[in-house]
Amino acid sequence: MALTISCPNCGKRNGYEFRYGGEDKGPRPAEEGLTPQSWCDYVHMNNCVAGIQKEWWCHKNGCGAWFTIFRNTLTNLEVEEPEAKL
C-alpha cells in the first residue's frame, strides 16, 4: 500500500498497479560455458541488498510497460538513481 512507483508512461502510481519483476541481473548469459549451478544462480539467486537496488517492474494494471526503478529496500520507497554505485 505504501509504495508508489514512477511509471515512465503514466507517472507516479500506487504500487498495487504493478508487478515485480526481480532484481536487475542483466541479459541472459550466453549458453557457452554455463553450468547448471551458474544458470540456476542467474535465474534464482538474488543479491537481497539491504539498501538501494535496481529492479524491474511491470505496469500491469496500466500501460503494461516493463521498466526499472531504484528502490531502497530498508524504507521500501522508490529513490532517484544513486550517484555512487553500491
Partner: peptide, 12 residues
Amino acid sequence: TVEWIRFHTRYD
C-alpha cells in the same frame, strides 16, 4: 502473455 513476451525480450 504480453507481459511475458515483453519481459523476456526487455534487453533486446
